[in-house]
Design a binder for these strands. Sequence first.
DNA 1: GCTTACAGTAAGTGATGGCTAACGCACAGG
DNA 2: CCTGTGCGTTAGCCATCACTTACTGTAAGC
Lengths: 103, 103
Amino acid sequence: MANAQALLAITALGDPTRRQIFEHLAHGPSPVGELASTMAVTRPAVSQHLRVLKEAGLVTETAQGTRRIYRLDRRGISAVHAWLDERWAEALNATGSTLEQDF
Amino acid sequence: MANAQALLAITALGDPTRRQIFEHLAHGPSPVGELASTMAVTRPAVSQHLRVLKEAGLVTETAQGTRRIYRLDRRGISAVHAWLDERWAEALNATGSTLEQDF
DNA sequence: GCTTACAGTAAGTGATGGCTAACGCACAGG
DNA sequence: CCTGTGCGTTAGCCATCACTTACTGTAAGC
């Protein structure tokens, strides 16, 4: 289900450090070391976060020698997008059909 | 800034219990007690989560006697939507302008 | 006014999860 | 090969935060 992907992505973006990584990658692809050098946490921490982001479909990894280049992945973003839209559509449906019961 | 609202909303939806509340409210407005009766946690816990969701602009509260009816709020949802779109737009810009450097 | 129902608040506890330090691994260069 | 670099992994510590148990507050009904 694409739903599970959305939940993973939302959970992943719930962490401030992961959002920082996410925003950095929005400015362009980057290897892990360069990513870590711009942040307050150590490289292993970044590595762990990238693992979570990758499992959530928010980033992709491509090897280049010993380096791993990370870039944003549209799939995770679209999944969150869709999830939010579905919830809001449900809400409109629900309040629409109960309009006359609301007093 | 609308950005701060988005970050609050994403952080709020990072918690599974809050997502459960959020999804329940997507099926229609509900008072706190009814909300808590369908979940595994106690009513005070739900109350605390609703406070967070409210501050994130994801739900609104309307008093009805001693009852507080909660419903989804479009503002928080739109904020997350916009935040994701901006990041993806940035990513497209970045990779677009560095296409010829990528090899 | 007293009681009942419904909900927010406060304090204290427990567990999830993020962080670091140390280690192991693969690839490139000499 | 051997060294250096760039990353991922593990173990363990610690802090944040979600949860419960009281308690307080407010509105409605008798």
